[in-house]
Amino acid sequence: MEEATLDNPQTTAKPAPFGTVFADTMTVTRYVDGVWSEVESIPVAPLSIHPGAHVLHYASTCFEGLKAFRMPDGDVRIFRLDRHLARLQQSAGLVCLPAPPTDVVEQMVRQTVAESRNILPTPPGALYLRPTLIGTETNIGAAGAASTEAMFYVLASPVGDYFSGGGRPLSILIEDQQMRSAPGFGQAKTGGNYASALRHVIRGRNEQGVDQVLFCPNGDVQETGASNFFLVNDRQLLTKPLDSSFLHGVTRDSVVTLASHLGYEVIERDFTVDDIKDWIKTGEAMLSGTAAVLAGVGKFVHDGREYVVNDGKIGPNTQRLREALVGIQTGTDEDVFGWLS
C-alpha cells in the first residue's frame, strides 16, 4: 500500500514517521518594537534568522503540540484548543518571551488548520499542530536579558501513531537519581527540558533497549522524557499531583477527567518507585501525551532488574481509557466535556 504523504494524505496505510511531513504553508507573526505584526500565511521553508539570534544562544523558545481531527461528517475539529492556548501563555512567561494575544494565537491555529484540510488524514490519523515561539533579537551579549524581539509561527503535520510499532507495550527505564528538568521549570513546554532528558533516554535505549525513561529523583515518580505517567487498575487511577517539577499535560488532564467520568477513583498524590513495583503486581502502567495519546507499559527496568507489567501486554484499563479518549477526539463518541471546537 502507498505511504501517506502530502500527495496522498487520506490513505489508510501507515503515515510517514511522526512529524516528518508538513503542510505547504504556515502562519507567522513577528514581535518588533513592542508590537506584533499582522498575521501572514507563508510557504513552509527554512527560516531566515541572524546567527546571533537570542534563541540560538540562550534557548529562548517554547511551543505547543495539539491535534485537529476529521469528524465522521467531514468537519474538522480541534481538541482542547483552549487549554493549549493557556499553557502557551504560561510557558512564554517562564522563558521570558512576549507571546501573541490568545485570540491571535487561536486565529493562527484555526487558519493553519483551514489551509491544511486537504492533507488531514482520516482517523485514527490527525493533523498535528506545532505553535512555536522563538526569541529573535540579535544580541549574543544578552545572556542575562530577555529577547526584545520574537517570532511566532504555527506548523501543521499529518500524523499517525507516535510510537513506532503502534499499539505495542513500551519498556521503561526507571531513573531514580536525575531530574528531567531544572527544579521549578518542568511545567514549561520548552525545548531545553526535552534536551536535558535526551541523554538519559538515548543511554537507556542504547544500553537497556528501552523506549523511554521515567524520571524519579530520590524515588519520587514524576514523568518520562516526553509523557505524563499513570498507574491504573480496575477501580483506581493514580498519578502525581500537579506541581512545577513536570509538564501539566493536556492529555493528562483529559485522562483524569475521563477516568472519573467512567467511575474510576482518581488519586492524585506523590508516590515512589516502590509503589510502582507493588502496584504492577496486579495493575497497569501507562503514559499520556498529545502525540502518544495513551500508551501501555509492558516492562520496567530498574537497577538491572526487569519488572513485567500485565504479562508484558497492554492492559484492559489502558485500552478502555485510550479507546474512550480517541472516541471523543475523532467524533465517534459524544463529546460530553465540550473538548472539541
Score class of each variant (00 low, 15 high):
residue 262 L to F: 12
residue 246 F to D: 01
residue 222 Q to G: 08
residue 230 F to G: 08
residue 247 L to Q: 07
residue 240 K to C: 08
residue 259 A to P: 04
residue 267 I to K: 03
residue 239 T to C: 14
residue 270 D to Y: 06
residue 227 S to Y: 07
residue 262 L to M: 14
residue 272 T to G: 08
residue 234 D to V: 08
residue 223 E to F: 12
residue 273 V to I: 14
residue 256 V to I: 13
residue 249 G to F: 07
residue 264 Y to P: 00
residue 238 L to D: 02
residue 268 E to V: 02
residue 268 E to N: 03
residue 241 P to L: 09
residue 272 T to Q: 10
residue 259 A to G: 09
residue 249 G to V: 00
residue 273 V to Y: 02
residue 272 T to D: 11
residue 245 S to G: 08
residue 235 R to N: 13
residue 232 V to A: 04
residue 241 P to R: 08
residue 223 E to Q: 13
residue 251 T to K: 03
residue 260 S to K: 14
residue 254 S to C: 10
residue 266 V to Y: 05
residue 244 S to M: 12
residue 240 K to F: 05
residue 251 T to G: 12
residue 272 T to N: 08
residue 250 V to R: 00
residue 232 V to T: 00
residue 251 T to S: 07
residue 231 L to S: 05
residue 263 G to I: 04
residue 227 S to A: 15
residue 226 A to Y: 06
residue 241 P to N: 11
residue 228 N to E: 10
residue 240 K to P: 11
residue 252 R to K: 15
residue 235 R to E: 15
residue 228 N to V: 09
residue 248 H to W: 07
residue 261 H to M: 13
residue 256 V to D: 01
residue 259 A to K: 02
residue 251 T to H: 06
residue 249 G to M: 04
residue 261 H to N: 14
residue 259 A to M: 05
residue 263 G to S: 13
residue 247 L to A: 03
residue 243 D to R: 07
residue 255 V to I: 13
